[in-house]
């Protein structure tokens, strides 16, 4: 069974590279003046004013080097993001990603399951409610990062945009904060892939997927039930006992 179309797989991994270079080179740029206050002034909302980001997470070597990487990679990041969003929009994949009624309850159910307060994995479609929330938030936060980035790249020529974000200082702050939000989401994503669904790497690389390996069928929590249940154990009743047809893991995309 196929789970992710090649466009989704390609844009996912290109995004890993582009976003990685954008974040690390951006942190190197930030280190040239690691704060938001004007010289001699103060800024309300940043507790680490003047403290540089550790060099180990920066890229570019020096301010100008990092700027060259940042202003080159931004085109790849945006083009890649638009390709992904265009595909997801045109092929209907967005239906698996948008919030649904009852999502708050379903997120709570996932949290309870992960905390061993429930025995059985909540029923889900292609993604669980927490995943949907994260995958839905990512493009919106990224859009804020891109807009605030444009606002500090061209604060005079795009003055209305910069003003809408509260001026240059605040636009720079939103650029930084939205980047942090992306880092937190990506870190959570990587943690969940490693601890709950390493099998998803296969579907994000080759596209291949089988139900037997899904977290729902494995009843997987972080570092629990990483291996699929033995084939003989996976009697249909055990697998689909709590599933109804409309959301059974038949959600995987099929492609010509």
């Amino acid at each position: 069974m196929r789970r992710h179309h090649w466009i989704v797989r390609l844009t996912h991994w290109v995004n890993v590279i582009a976003l990685g270079v954008m974040i690390t080179s951006g942190l190197r740029i930030f280190n040239a003046y690691p704060g938001f206050a004007r010289p001699g002034g103060t800024f309300c909302c940043y507790p680490f004013e003047g403290k540089a980001i550790p060099a180990i997470v920066t890229f570019g070597g020096w301010l100008a080097g990092a700027r060259h990487w940042h202003f080159a990679m931004m085109w790849l990041l945006v083009a890649n993001g638009l390709l992904y969003l265009g595909y997801v929009y045109l092929r209907g994949g967005w239906r698996d990603l948008v919030p649904r009624r009852g999502d708050v309850r379903d997120v709570w159910a996932m949290v309870r399951f992960y905390l061993f307060l429930e025995r059985e994995h909540p029923r889900q479609g292609k993604h669980n409610a927490m995943q949907r929330g994260a995958y839905f938030a990512m493009p919106w936060i990224a859009a804020l990062t891109v807009m605030s980035g444009l606002a500090i790249w061209k604060p005079v020529q795009l003055a209305p945009l910069t003003d809408a974000l509260g001026g240059y200082q605040w636009a720079r702050y939103w650029h930084f904060c939205s980047m942090l939000a992306l880092v937190v989401l990506a870190a959570g994503h990587v943690f969940m892939v490693v601890s709950v669904d390493p099998w998803s790497l296969r579907s994000m690389i080759t596209g291949g997927w089988s139900e037997r390996f899904s977290p729902e069928v494995r009843n997987a929590r972080p570092f629990v039930n990483l291996w699929p249940r033995a084939a003989t154990m996976a009697a249909p009743s055990a697998v689909t006992g709590n599933a109804t047809p409309d959301h059974a893991p038949s959600a995987p995309e099929t492609h010509p």
Partner: peptide, 19 residues
Amino acid sequence: SAAGLSAAALVLGACDSEG
């Protein structure tokens, strides 16, 4: 070539290298 270089940059190039 750009993708390859960027990937290399990411893997080898952290720690403040110029790439």
